[in-house]
């Protein structure tokens, strides 16, 4: 039974990773027609280096993700402090209001933003994408930091106050240092959400002001080139690294943990 279960798990992993591995491998194959035998070449990566459009879209993606991470982490952390450390009327409703960006299909959110930004004159472009990405990332940040606050015992702050700390001093000396792993984790999470976001960026992009996923999408629709494999592989590896970093920081086992 056990070995059967392990074989099944192995098959699931093959299913999950097979296309990714094939794609990554093809980026190193000299033939543009995916022909075998495999002929190792970095030709497509060299091509990529000369593709100004993709490079620019790549930088756009990175800047957007960095800004999203900074803004969403700052705002979301403040909101998490209120939602998890203070009691007030309407708290339950405010927590529920975090769900729409997560639970509503991005197609609907994205088209709604398109309509509204057009209507109000905000328009489309990187600034509009930033507004959208931050909104998508805030709920995740609030939830990650909130979970961190939940595992952080409130009596540590009380202990600090019993020793003479004002609430603000207690926050900076005790809560913030212990919450740091969660905050860094949340920032990485927000970065990943933005870096991989396609649907919202797609509706809010204008030609010449796109992100990497949008550019990849239009390239796929126009026809394959292994260059796309190369850039896709880079994007995959980048987001895997970011997410493994998140797991490292935000998992229980950071210094904020209970013994």
């Amino acid at each position: 039974m056990t070995s059967l279960a392990r074989i099944f798990l192995g098959l699931v992993l093959v299913f999950l990773y097979l296309p990714i591995v094939v794609m990554a491998a093809m980026g190193f194959n000299a033939s543009p027609l995916y022909a075998l035998p495999f002929d190792f070449s970095t030709h497509w990566y060299e091509e990529l280096a000369g593709n100004g459009r993709l490079i620019e879209a790549g930088w756009n993606s990175i800047w957007l993700a960095v800004l999203t991470a900074v803004i969403a982490t700052a705002l979301g952390t403040l909101a998490a402090l209120a939602l998890w450390r203070r009691t007030f009327r309407g708290r339950a409703i405010l927590r529920i209001l975090l769900l729409p960006p997560i639970a509503i299909p991005w197609l609907i959110t994205g088209t709604a933003m398109l309509v509204f930004f057009f209507w109000t004159g905000i328009g489309r472009g990187l600034h509009a994408m930033l507004i959208g990405h931050v909104a998508l990332a805030i709920p995740y940040v609030v939830l990650v930091v909130g979970t961190g606050l939940q595992t952080l015992r409130a009596d540590l702050e009380e202990a600090a106050m019993s020793l003479g700390s004002t609430p603000i001093h207690a926050f900076f000396r005790v809560t913030l240092p212990l919450l740091m792993p969660s905050i860094v984790g949340a920032a990485l999470f927000a970065f990943a959400v933005s870096l991989d976001q396609f649907v919202i960026s797609y509706f809010l992009s204008v030609p010449g002001m796109t992100t990497l996923p949008v550019e990849i999408y239009s390239a796929i629709r126009k026809g394959f080139t292994p260059e796309i494999n190369a850039i896709s592989t880079i994007l995959l590896v980048a987001s895997m690294i970011v997410i493994l970093g998140f797991a490292r920081f935000a998992r229980p086992g950071g210094i904020g943990e209970r013994s």
Binding site: A74, L94, L97, P101, T109, W119, P139
Partner: peptide, 21 residues
């Protein structure tokens, strides 16, 4: 003060757009 920035942002970017739609 803690809640305003996040919820103002969510209102601008999600709730108002859904209403407009």
């Amino acid at each position: 003060a803690l809640l305003l920035p996040s919820y103002a942002w969510l209102t601008l970017a999600v709730l108002l757009p859904l209403t407009a739609m």
